[in-house]
């Protein structure tokens, strides 16, 4: 099927292509253009150059704060999620009764939507904090750790499944051979299992970084940025800038373009690291 008559090519690609152009391609280009303009609706845009980008930093501290908050959050949750997920995967690949049920339970939160997760945890966290006479809006660090716990609860099961797949792909003979050579469980873990699941580590890091950066629903439901937008992450800050005030749509769009560039940069770095590692091995 190296060659296909044009009409068939059109038949196979047109529906997707059309939807893609409407839902993504035009909005994407229009979004870049609008970030250099001042607008309320699309039709009344007037060119302002880089003004919106400057305003994003100078008008208030919200964008910088959200950026710092997001980076901190991403680092903490990536580390914790992967450590827990690997630990669980390691336990669940040993001969323990009921591993399947455990797997089912640990994975379950992953299917629940972010808005709903946010409210579940709001109830739980406020229920604990009320004993100390405060609530989650008292300090941004409560919101921060609340989000970290929530994100762990949601993502650990997912990552665990990927690690399990990674561990199970290690041949039994290799481990048996090590055992015969007198290696104990710790040595097997350190010298065989961990190096062999490195590809899974790459995947999981990638997924957790991407998800941490783009987090929105959970943030909106759990704290909505309280107190005073101090617990707002990038996606939420962009949303509030955009829809919270008439006249700052352009600034919101400029923030969104920068957000896109940050995410793209992280993905590129990640891909380069993965590629160089693949070359080494």
């Amino acid at each position: 099927m190296q060659k296909m008559p044009k009409k068939y090519y059109v038949f196979f690609t047109l529906p997707t292509l059309l939807a893609f152009v409407i839902a993504f391609f035009i909005p994407f280009l229009a979004g870049i253009y609008l970030s250099f303009t001042e607008f309320r609706t699309v039709t009344d845009a007037s060119w302002v150059g880089f003004n919106n980008y400057i305003l994003a930093f100078t008008d208030d501290q919200n964008f910088i704060n959200a950026l710092i908050f997001t980076i901190k959050f991403a680092i903490v949750s990536v580390v914790l999620i992967n450590v827990f997920a690997f630990f669980l995967a390691y336990l669940l690949t040993r001969s323990i009764p009921g591993t399947n049920i455990f797997r089912t339970i640990f994975f379950m939160p992953n299917l629940i939507g972010g808005i709903i997760l946010g409210y579940i945890w709001q109830l739980l966290i406020n229920g604990i904090l009320i004993n100390f006479g405060v609530d989650i809006t008292f300090d941004a660090s409560y919101g921060f750790w609340g989000l970290v716990v929530l994100m762990n609860w949601q993502m650990v099961g997912y990552m665990m499944i990927i690690y399990i797949a990674g561990i199970q792909s290690i041949s039994n003979e290799l481990i048996e051979a090590a055992k015969i050579d007198g290696a104990n469980a710790w040595q097997i873990l350190k010298s065989i299992i961990v190096p062999m699941v490195m590809p899974a580590v790459t995947i999981c890091t990638f997924l957790t970084v991407a998800n941490s950066f783009k987090l929105f629903d959970q943030n909106l439901a759990l704290t909505a940025g309280a107190p005073d937008r101090a617990s707002a992450m990038l996606a939420l800050d962009i949303f509030t800038t955009f829809y919270g005030r008439i006249g700052s749509e352009g600034v919101g769009q400029a923030k969104a373009v920068m957000f896109f560039m940050i995410v793209a940069a992280i993905v590129l770095i990640q891909l380069r690291l993965t590629r160089s590692r693949e070359v080494e091995s």
Partner: peptide, 9 residues
């Protein structure tokens, strides 16, 4: 591309 980039447009 994050959704916020294209949400308005």
């Amino acid at each position: 591309v994050p959704f916020q980039m294209v949400m308005f447009t």
